[in-house]
């Protein structure tokens, strides 16, 4: 009896996790048992990678109120650093250092890059931030395209492969699936944790009322710049994994189109919860992979993929300010409402 009273007072941590999360986790964990290699590598591997990069944007935008379009550039920067310091087919530039040096170095440099970006971007607010980060993203794109001594210009680097750690070929679909799943889950949980840690709470306070937070003695600018630095880690790891997945990195990887795609992903999914980034990434990847077939079935030209994405994005933004997550919670409240007790459109 005592145990029942205990759980009623404070349910254990695993009982507080909703059933849907358990099912999602188990399905993802045992996915290789029933999914093919294409699904594992192209669809889920890519979803997790784009989700991580979108997660870094979600962290900045959802908790910090700073919509940064430079997150893809930070991801691309980390990928470039791995290619430059590690191994690639461009042996003139690549240093060929071991992985335990290149990967931390790439992440540290990505954090530095993000800090400088943040330092510039936090001087502005709201919509100004979008414009400045968009300008930084395009500056990065043009710079990598023009610079041949470090970034190898237009063609970039190819043959960038993950290390053969523990004798595992990490580009094998199953291994790569688990690698991306691990990091995606890690950053998903880490973001949830940080959102309730003092730093995340202070960041949300800064988002809601910077002047009051400043009056309370918080350093608003420092918190914002720190948020950029923290958000660089999931973006950087996502960028490295993206480089390994396609075994190459070029200016086009971090161009203006991909930068906007990341925003589209985060907004379609919903900026309120970290899950939104991955939901958005999944929708985007499914669309990008199968749009050709869908469009052909509907009788359109297969090249109109962008039209489909753009219209879907418009529809989501137009009807819900909070993406698919917002639509979902709205649908759930309207579905679960007792219509006799609460008639009309108002939610109880």
């Amino acid at each position: 009896m005592a145990s029942i009273a205990d759980t009623a007072a404070a349910p254990s941590w695993y009982a507080r996790i909703p059933l849907a999360w358990w099912i999602t986790g188990l399905v993802l964990l045992f996915m290789p048992a029933f999914a093919g290699e294409f699904v594992l590598y192209q669809i889920f591997g890519w979803t997790f990678i784009l989700g991580m990069i979108a997660l870094s944007l979600m962290f900045l935008a959802g908790y910090g109120g700073m919509v940064s379009l430079a997150q893809m550039s930070i991801a691309g920067f980390a990928g470039y650093m791995v290619a430059i310091f590690g191994d690639s087919a461009i042996t003139d530039i690549s240093q060929g250092w071991p992985w335990y040096v290149t990967i931390p170095l790439a992440l540290v440099l990505a954090v530095l890059f993000a800090t400088v970006t943040g330092w510039l971007a936090v001087r502005t607010e709201g919509i100004y931030t979008i414009m400045i980060t968009l300008a930084i993203a395009s500056a990065f794109f043009y710079f990598t395209r023009q610079n041949y001594t470090i970034f190898n210009g237009f063609s970039g680097f190819n043959g960038v492969l993950p290390p053969q750690l523990f004798g595992v070929d990490w580009r094998h679909p199953v291994a790569f699936y688990y690698l991306t799943l691990f990091w995606a889950a890690f950053w998903f949980l880490a973001t949830l944790y940080v959102s309730r840690a003092p730093m995340g709470l202070a960041l949300q306070g800064v988002r809601d009322n910077p002047r009051r937070m400043a009056a309370l003695g918080y350093n608003v600018t420092a918190h914002r710049v720190a948020a950029y630095a923290v958000a660089a880690l999931p973006a950087g790891i996502g960028g490295i994994l993206l480089t390994w997945q396609s075994a190459q990195i070029s200016p086009g990887t971090a161009g203006i189109g991909p930068a906007i795609d990341i925003l589209v992903i985060a907004v379609i999914g919903g900026l309120r919860h970290p899950a939104g980034a991955f939901i958005g990434a999944f929708v985007y990847v499914i669309l990008k992979t199968f749009a050709l077939d869908i469009l052909v079935v509907l009788g359109f030209d297969g090249e109109r993929f962008n039209l489909l994405v753009g219209l879907g994005f418009l529809a989501v933004v137009f009807w819900s300010s909070d993406g698919i997550l917002g639509l979902w919670s709205r649908w759930r409240t309207s579905w679960g409402r007792d219509r006799l007790r609460f008639p009309g459109r108002r939610t109880p």
């Binding site: 925003l263 030209d301 039209l307 753009g310 994005f313 418009l314």
Partner: peptide, 29 residues
């Protein structure tokens, strides 16, 4: 579009991004 979301600057900006994607593809078409 924009009259429906007055004062929501971020959402307006996002809508313009969507519009630019759609317009660019329509013009390409």
């Amino acid at each position: 579009v924009f009259r429906k979301m007055e004062g929501e600057e971020l959402r307006q900006t996002l809508v313009t991004i969507g519009l630019s994607i759609v317009l660019a593809d329509l013009l390409l078409w």
